[in-house]
Design a protein around this nucleic acid. Structure first.
Lengths: 132, 132
DNA sequence: CTTGACAATAGTAATGATTACTATTATAAT
DNA sequence: ATTATAATAGTAATCATTACTATTGTCAAG
């Protein structure tokens, strides 16, 4: 069993993810942390994002388009991506735990969870659409 | 408006996707079609998969791990991926249309749909787990 | 049945996201 | 202070996918 040693880069990444609400990609994390650690390597960012995810300290999200996104908010919640401007944001809604039961009904293994991403038009793009 | 011309490569890809149940990746499609067209290019496979998806003749699926997968089954249905052996398969369950309404409740844009992927242990991996 | 326009292809180069590698630096226990 | 080794910076490599280009295939018109 290997010991985890402290690193200020990792602390900084964790800190950033806990406070931001922008669901950054690895590259966005890199650009942000570079303000404080101009020499940080993109590899270091990726390694730490993977590490923190394994430790359950952050969550990895898929936006279904490009890069993975990361979230320091561990409260289970759902996300939305705009099909037009690609904006990615939280949704205020209750848990959908019950759909696991629906999925398990005719399934012979074990359903442990699900990932769901909602899509459509964000408020701004929806307005733009109406104006036309 | 450009005219779509017939191509036997494209017909073969469509044919394959309609009949298989293995939710193949682009590379799996490539390997399969090569049996019939040994000179087909991987670029041709990708171009046609994108084209057929645009035409709504096939569906693109994300398994959340590696490559995209493709399905010739246009009936809306849900999928499952095993976290251990990575097997990807269909689930027999009803539509979850109602969760769009739940998501839209406190949202100010327009929810048009959702993508959901269930995960857990497939039948085989679940059995293996119990034996230990 | 030719011919000609141009869609589609094969083959290869390029891109973007991510991971792997390696020599150096930082951490923390003794 | 010394030392073992985890973590880093910087760079190379990988993987999935897209872009590019010269050649071939399709098909409508003469």
């Amino acid at each position: 069993m290997t010991v985890t040693k402290f690193s200020k880069q990792r602390e900084s990444i964790k800190e950033y993810l806990i406070h931001t609400k922008e669901h950054p990609t690895a590259d966005m994390v890199y650009l942000n942390i570079r303000q404080k650690f101009p020499n940080i390597s993109l590899g270091t960012v990726y390694r730490n994002l993977n590490f923190l995810e394994e430790q359950g300290e952050i969550v990895r999200l898929k936006d279904g388009i490009g890069s993975d996104r990361f979230d320091g908010n561990l409260e289970p919640h759902y996300h939305f991506v705009c099909r037009k401007c690609k904006k990615f944001c939280d949704l205020e809604m209750n848990s959908l735990e019950h759909i696991n039961t629906l999925a398990a009904a005719n399934f012979h293994g074990r359903i442990e969870g699900h990932t769901t991403l909602f899509y459509g038009l964000c408020e701004e793009c929806f307005e733009d659409e109406r104006k036309k």
